[in-house]
């Protein structure tokens, strides 16, 4: 297994209890490798491995130009970032490649990038590669998209919007939704609240019951395949990841 932190912001490293992740796969558990993306390494690799730039070519200059291009031309930065996970998965070294992708608003730009670049570039290797990436991203045999959301108003509305956008523009296979941070039912009901006095006991019960109603409402708005619990009082990202891993088990 390979896990990729696509934004390279150390979120994945802390959840895997790894002090730091680099661009080369680090084995964090037996059989589980992880990397953190780094755009200049990804660019280098894109040039050498994917575009097959000949050894005689002035790679340094081309790479400098592409680095500038990545800041300038639409889609280049995104395609380099999303190209890495796709290349890893195409290489056949891993049973699965799991990508921790950017937030939904930005993620759609990444999904769109290969197609945008394929449309903008008239000919050549870049176009061919971009087309290949777009095809792989769209294949439901090779790619699966999981949207992780929580049962609250704004995350749910954003998820529904993204589901429609991805479907309408055929940006990838239809995503399935993982509902995270779902409170377990307390087993209490509204009529119990009057029996709990007016202190913290009653306040916490009121809060819990309101949240149960709210989360049931939003959970019903959005079809989801997996539900994960809200881990109240759990402190570190490593603990959170391990407790969730125990519960995800086979559904994924």
């Amino acid at each position: 297994m390979l896990a990729i932190d696509m934004l390279g912001q150390a979120g994945l490293a802390t959840h895997l209890r790894s002090s730091s992740l680099g661009y080369d796969p680090t084995e964090v558990r037996p059989g589980l490798f992880a990397i953190a993306m780094n755009r200049s390494d990804a660019l280098d690799e894109y040039l050498k491995v994917q575009l097959h730039i000949p050894h005689s070519a002035p790679t340094r200059q081309i790479s400098a130009a592409l680095a500038a291009l990545a800041e300038t031309a639409p889609g280049v930065r995104e395609i380099i970032s999303i190209g890495k996970p796709i290349a890893e998965s195409a290489a056949g070294k891993w049973d699965a490649v799991v990508v921790d992708a950017p937030p939904l608003g930005q993620f759609q730009s990444y999904l769109r990038a290969p197609r945008t670049v394929a449309e903008l570039v008239p000919t050549g290797n870049v176009k061919r590669l971009a087309r290949g990436l777009a095809a792989r991203l769209q294949s439901d045999r090779l790619t699966a998209i999981r949207i992780v959301t929580t049962p609250a108003e704004l995350p749910t509305l954003e998820t529904l919007e993204a589901l429609t956008a991805i479907k309408d523009a055929a940006l990838g296979p239809e995503p399935t939704v993982i509902l995270n941070r779902v409170l377990a039912s307390s087993g209490m009901s509204k009529s119990d609240l009057d029996l709990l006095g007016d202190g913290s006991l009653q306040e916490a019960a009121t809060m819990q019951l309101h949240l149960e109603i709210e989360q049931d409402h939003w959970a019903s708005q959005c079809a989801h395949s997996i539900t994960l619990p809200y881990l109240l009082g759990v402190f570190t990202p490593g603990e959170v990841a391990e407790q969730l891993a125990d519960r995800i088990g086979s559904p994924l």
């Binding site: 040039l47 575009l51 730039i53 070519a57 002035p58 200059q61 081309i62 130009a65 592409l66 291009l69 300038t72 031309a73 903008l120 570039v121 008239p122 000919t123 050549g124 290797n125 870049v126 176009k127």
Partner: peptide, 21 residues
């Protein structure tokens, strides 16, 4: 250098971007 970049990247792309810039 640009000729190589042309071959590798798809030259018209670079010219189009240059126009734009």
């Amino acid at each position: 250098m640009l000729r190589i970049a042309d071959t590798v990247l798809g030259g018209p792309m670079l010219s189009d971007i240059t126009d734009f810039l």
